[in-house]
Design a protein around this nucleic acid. Structure first.
Lengths: 330, 330
DNA sequence: GTGTAATGTGTAACCGTTTACACACATAGT
DNA sequence: ACTATGTGTGTAAACGGTTACACATTACAC
């Protein structure tokens, strides 16, 4: 493995000139350029990124901190972030925190020591202070799928409350009378906002009662249990809005076992828009543009790294109602 | 951000001693240890990993090269690799190649320049020479889900041919007469071996005919189209073995649309064992221990990095027949 | 008392870049 | 002729660690 000094010797110019050539910084004459290029090719020289980072302060590495890459929401985020990252010349480090604040803290320390250039965080437990601590180390942060009001933090969330309203309204418009909601975990802002959206629309309906809202843990089995519980209490429900698609799938599975026909007897809508094309009847959902979220997170991060101006606030992303067979009016 | 020299000054010992203390290499007296610890805490000193890598040659970073993290097989691999990596003190870089050899080559170059310690590769286009090139740079490689015969390369695959036999045999044992196979892409070794397993079992059956084997692209829609094609030619089939679970799901969707009852009329089995608990009837499958594959890949890699002996060969992992509703005999 | 090994510490070179600064020379404006 | 400015290059000091080597002290065996 040859070094810049080997090239310098072979080309007969100083290392500074080589460096200037490589980084297109400062002046380099035409002749110098040519001899350098020749030497580089002859030696098959590749600059050492480690040394580069040590001297130049940039590692061209960004980290993506997610609770669990197995949750289908996150591969899509990862895919988008990685696409943009690789286009911009960054490399992406993947970190699973397992919803565990200790692992999270630990990872943040490791990443600081690795001098990463920036970090995209998805966490429901992280505190704003931790983000300020990162920024104090000059590491820009973008938070996704979570936000705090009135804090100078760049975050990206989808319009959860509006989305919740859209879902409920859609079921209402489709003629459903008793609409239940399977809510995601209480401490997750996104879940809470979706529930608030549901309440906005349903609270004043004469059939409304709080027991139409049950909690699930955002998993298929959580949705399944929630649906069984719900059906035991309210066998006459006509619509179900699940806080995410996985729970919607679980709910449909339960309904299926009760021999409830979808969408004839009960219409179901989920939230997220993850790819579940294997599923039938195909699930209606409020689609978040997941890919765009990852993409924008990475782009905002790049802007911050390059010290371009960017307002530190929550960026809301629009959602879209997708009507499929699971809630289609006949 | 304080440096080792700041600590040195405050503790009144040389940087060498600090370094020895930090790395537990060489002798350090009890008193020195205490003053150093105190100084470190006072300054909140954290060693700079970049500098460490430059001097010490190790980056504590490994890369995972996958075609597409959106394919549900890979998040599980990533999850396993990351779990083990983080336990062993490595950090995981995620790279999507999009099944594109150019992106692949490009990534490999970038990773060499970043002086990563090792790389786990899943690729159906990579050539052994590229792996030798990496090893020439002293970067150990573990290949997963692909292998070459008689090459000194560490690779991990599941027992695809045996698995194919198991799937076909299971359908046969369940009383199916005409069993079709939806095969994965021709150039993927794993797909081919599964097909060979199917042939081993079915070729000598009197109902066998080559047109019972059709190709799909390992996606849901690929399985869907393949099934439609198959059903048009052979409306009397009684069993379908799909080369992976996604295609099996697509096939079931198509059968569903033809109002074919599963498993009464047609039994379906997939391959992979990805988590599709939302699916009903639940899919029978030949489960690969995907998590173990990722786990072992990372452990082998660690062994190679630490220069512990490891035979360079293909390691086969056993698969398991999982019988669910989609192929249950009544 | 001497030789040998274990323990403990510091100096300085090194890892492979970037970059501030100094300097040389050419060109052009006054 | 004298600046100013633009072009081109080299020297050497960072960046923040690790580690080979030299050297000092102590312990212990003989």
């Amino acid at each position: 493995m040859s070094t810049i000094r080997d090239v310098s010797k072979l080309a007969g110019v100083s290392v500074a000139t080589i460096s200037r050539y490589l980084n297109q910084s400062g002046y380099v004459s035409k002749e110098a350029e040519e001899t350098i290029l020749a030497a580089i090719q002859k030696l098959n020289y590749k600059p050492n990124n480690i040394a580069r980072s040590l001297a130049g302060k940039r590692t061209a590495t960004i980290a993506l901190l997610v609770p669990d890459i197995l949750n289908p929401f996150f591969p899509e985020i990862a895919r988008a972030a990685e696409d943009v990252a690789s286009r911009l010349g960054y490399t992406l480090i993947l970190c699973n925190t397992d919803y565990n604040p200790d692992k999270e803290r630990n990872y943040i320390d490791v990443l600081i020591n690795k001098r990463i250039d920036g970090i995209i965080i998805s966490s429901y437990t992280i505190r704003p202070e931790q983000i300020y601590a990162l920024e104090a180390e000059n590491i820009p942060v973008v938070v996704i799928d979570n936000a705090w009001e009135d804090t100078p933090i760049v975050s990206i969330t989808s319009a959860n409350r509006t989305g919740g309203q859209m879902a409920a309204q859609h079921l209402l418009d489709s003629g459903c009378q008793k609409i239940a909601h399977i809510c995601g975990p209480y401490h997750i802002t996104a879940a809470k906002n979706r529930m608030l959206g549901y309440e906005d629309v349903c609270k004043q309906q004469e059939w409304f009662t709080p027991s139409l809202m049950v909690y699930g843990d955002f998993s298929v089995s959580g949705g399944y249990s929630a649906m069984r519980e719900l059906y035991a209490k309210h066998p006459d429900i006509e619509g179900v809005f699940a806080g995410n698609d996985l729970m919607a799938a679980g709910a449909m599975k339960a309904l299926h076992e009760f021999s409830v026909r979808i969408p004839d007897q009960v219409k179901v809508i989920g939230y997220d828009g993850i790819h579940m094309d294997m599923f039938y009847p195909e699930l209606s959902t409020i689609a978040q543009p997941i890919y765009s979220i990852g993409e924008r997170a990475m782009m905002y991060l790049d802007q911050m790294i390059k010290e371009h101006p960017l307002e530190k606030k929550n960026y809301l992303i629009d959602v879209q109602l997708i009507v499929n067979a699971s809630s289609r009016s006949l």
